[in-house]
Simulated scan of single mutants.
Amino acid sequence: MYIHHVAAYLPAEIITNEHFTRLNGLSHEWITERTGIRTRRKATPGENTNTMAVEATRRALAGAPAFPAADVDLIVGATYTPHDTIYTVAHAVQRELQVSDIPVVSVSSACSSLLNAVEIVEGYFALGKARRALVVVSEHNTAYNNEHDTVAGHLWGDGAATLLLSPERLAPTDLHVRTVLTGGAGNVGKADASVTLKPVERGIVMPHGKDVFTHACQYMSRVTQQVLERNGLSVADVAYLIPHQANLRITRNVVQQLGLPEERAVSNIEELGNTGCAGAAIALADIWPRLQPSEQVVVTVFGGGYSYGAMLLGR
Results as ranks from 00 to 15, higher is better:
Leu228Gly: 12
Ala193Cys: 14
Leu175Val: 01
Val121Thr: 13
Thr142Ser: 15
Leu97Lys: 10
Ile204Arg: 03
Gly36Pro: 06
Arg22Glu: 14
Asp192Leu: 14
Val200Ile: 06
Met220Asp: 05
Ile282Glu: 02
Gln292Ala: 15
Val121Glu: 02
Arg40His: 08
Arg38Asp: 01
Leu291Gly: 08
Ile86Ala: 14
Ile120Asp: 03
Leu115Arg: 02
Leu155Met: 13
Thr142Met: 01
Glu139Pro: 04
His28Ser: 15
Phe20His: 11
Gly184Thr: 14
Gly77Phe: 06
Ile86Val: 15
Leu61Pro: 09
Val89Met: 11
Leu165Val: 08
Gly153Phe: 03
Ala110Gln: 09
Ala62Gln: 15
Thr300Cys: 07
Pro45Arg: 06
His208Asp: 14
Pro261Lys: 13
Asn145Ser: 13
Pro261Val: 10
Gly186Met: 08
Ala143Cys: 09
Leu248Phe: 05
Arg290Glu: 15
Val180Gln: 08
Ala143Lys: 15
Asn247Cys: 01
Tyr219Cys: 09
Val151Leu: 14
Pro207Trp: 06
Ala92Phe: 07
His215Lys: 12
Ala53Glu: 04
Ala133Pro: 06
Ala216Lys: 12
Glu122Asn: 14
Thr88Met: 03
Asn247His: 03
Val195Leu: 15
Phe125Cys: 05
Ala130Gly: 09
Val298Ala: 05
Gly46Glu: 14
Glu295Gly: 03
Asn48Val: 01
Thr32Glu: 13
Asp101Gly: 05
Gly159Tyr: 06
Cys277Asn: 14
Asp84Ile: 01
Ala133Val: 05
Ala152Asp: 14
Gly153His: 05
Glu119Leu: 12
Gln256Pro: 00
Ile3Gln: 03
Gly276Met: 07
Ile31Glu: 12
Arg58Cys: 01
Pro68Arg: 10
Ser112Leu: 09
Gly159Leu: 03
Glu270Ala: 15
Ala171Phe: 03
Val301Ile: 08
Arg264Ala: 08
Gly273Ser: 03
Ala191Leu: 14
Ser27Leu: 11
Leu248His: 06
Ala70Leu: 01
Tyr240Ala: 09
Asp73His: 11
Lys129Asp: 12
Glu263Ser: 12
His140Lys: 11
Leu181Ala: 10
Ala78Met: 08
Val135Tyr: 02
Pro11Glu: 08
Thr51Gly: 07
Thr150Asn: 13
Gly183Ile: 04
Leu23Ile: 04
Gly157Ile: 00
Thr16Asn: 11
Tyr9Glu: 11
Gly232Trp: 10
Gly157Tyr: 00
Ile3His: 02
Ser221Cys: 05
Thr224Ile: 10
Thr224Arg: 08
His208Leu: 12
Gly314Asn: 13
Ser294Cys: 05
Tyr80Ala: 14
Glu29Gly: 02
Phe67Cys: 10
Leu155Ile: 12
Leu241Thr: 02
Thr81Asn: 08
Tyr2Cys: 01
Ala191Tyr: 14
Ala185Met: 10
Thr49Leu: 05
Gly304Glu: 10
Arg249Tyr: 04
His140Pro: 00
Arg59Val: 03
Ala246Phe: 07
Ala160Lys: 05
Pro289Ala: 10
Ala161Phe: 00
Ser113Asn: 06
Gly309Leu: 07
Val298Met: 05
Val298Asp: 03
Pro289Gly: 09
Asn274Ser: 10
Val266Gln: 05
Val254Glu: 00
Val298Trp: 06
Gln98Phe: 04
Gly314Leu: 01
Leu23Thr: 05
Leu74Lys: 11
